[in-house]
Simulated assay, not measured.
Amino acid sequence: MANTPQAKKRIRRNQARAEINGARVGRIRTFIKKVEAALASGDKEAATAALAAAQPELARGVAKGVLHKNTASRKFSRLTKRLTALA
C-alpha cells in the first residue's frame, strides 16, 4: 500500500486517467466497428463515410497517447485496403 502522500495521489491520478483513456479507446473501437460493419454489408458509400469519421479519431488517440502511432497507421491502412477491395 502507498505510504507517502505523493504515492497516494499518484494512485488517484492513475485511476482517473485509466477511466478517461479507457473511454477514449472505446470510442475509437466504436468508430472502427462502424467501418467494419459497413464493409461487411458491402455498402461502399457508408464505409467511405465511416472511414472518414474514424481517421481523425485514430489520429486523436495517437495525439492523446492512448494509441501508438504505428498501430493507428496500421489500422487505417488495413481498413482502407479493405475499402478499395470492395469496388
Results as ranks from 00 to 15, higher is better:
residue 13 R to A: 12
residue 22 G to S: 11
residue 21 N to V: 04
residue 55 Q to G: 02
residue 13 R to E: 13
residue 3 N to F: 07
residue 85 A to E: 15
residue 4 T to Q: 05
residue 30 T to A: 13
residue 16 A to I: 06
residue 65 G to K: 06
residue 61 G to K: 00
residue 41 S to M: 11
residue 52 A to F: 09
residue 45 E to H: 07
residue 57 E to Q: 15
residue 8 K to R: 15
residue 3 N to R: 15
residue 74 R to C: 06
residue 25 V to H: 03
residue 8 K to W: 05
residue 57 E to L: 14
residue 55 Q to C: 02
residue 53 A to G: 04
residue 16 A to S: 09
residue 24 R to F: 05
residue 51 L to I: 09
residue 45 E to V: 11
residue 55 Q to A: 13
residue 42 G to P: 07
residue 34 K to R: 13
residue 30 T to P: 00
residue 56 P to C: 05
residue 12 R to W: 04
residue 85 A to Y: 06
residue 53 A to K: 12
residue 54 A to H: 02
residue 1 M to S: 10
residue 82 R to F: 01
residue 35 V to P: 00
residue 61 G to D: 01
residue 32 I to C: 07
residue 67 L to S: 02
residue 56 P to E: 05
residue 20 I to E: 11
residue 83 L to W: 02
residue 21 N to Q: 13
residue 36 E to K: 09
residue 43 D to R: 03
residue 4 T to G: 05
residue 79 L to R: 01
residue 12 R to T: 09
residue 58 L to S: 01
residue 53 A to T: 07
residue 16 A to T: 08
residue 35 V to H: 00
residue 56 P to M: 04
residue 7 A to S: 11
residue 44 K to Y: 08
residue 27 R to K: 11
residue 42 G to Y: 06
residue 15 Q to S: 09
residue 75 K to I: 15
residue 51 L to V: 10
residue 47 A to W: 00
residue 51 L to K: 00
residue 64 K to V: 12
residue 71 T to G: 06
residue 61 G to W: 01
residue 1 M to R: 12
residue 50 A to Y: 01
residue 85 A to V: 07
residue 55 Q to T: 14
residue 9 K to P: 01
residue 56 P to F: 07
residue 9 K to H: 08
residue 70 N to I: 04
residue 71 T to W: 04
residue 16 A to V: 08
residue 25 V to R: 15
residue 7 A to L: 06
residue 11 I to L: 14
residue 35 V to L: 04
residue 34 K to E: 14
residue 34 K to Q: 14
residue 15 Q to K: 14
residue 62 V to L: 10
residue 71 T to R: 12
residue 87 A to S: 13
residue 13 R to H: 07
residue 85 A to T: 09
residue 39 L to K: 02
residue 47 A to P: 03
residue 37 A to W: 05
residue 17 R to H: 08
residue 43 D to T: 04
residue 49 A to W: 00
residue 16 A to K: 11
residue 41 S to D: 15
residue 32 I to R: 00
residue 19 E to A: 11
residue 83 L to D: 02
residue 21 N to S: 10
residue 1 M to C: 08
residue 30 T to W: 11
residue 2 A to T: 06
residue 31 F to I: 02
residue 17 R to V: 11
residue 12 R to M: 08
residue 74 R to S: 12
residue 29 R to K: 15
residue 9 K to W: 08
residue 56 P to L: 06
residue 54 A to K: 01
residue 83 L to F: 04
residue 47 A to R: 00
residue 80 T to Q: 15
residue 58 L to I: 10
residue 25 V to C: 03
residue 43 D to P: 05
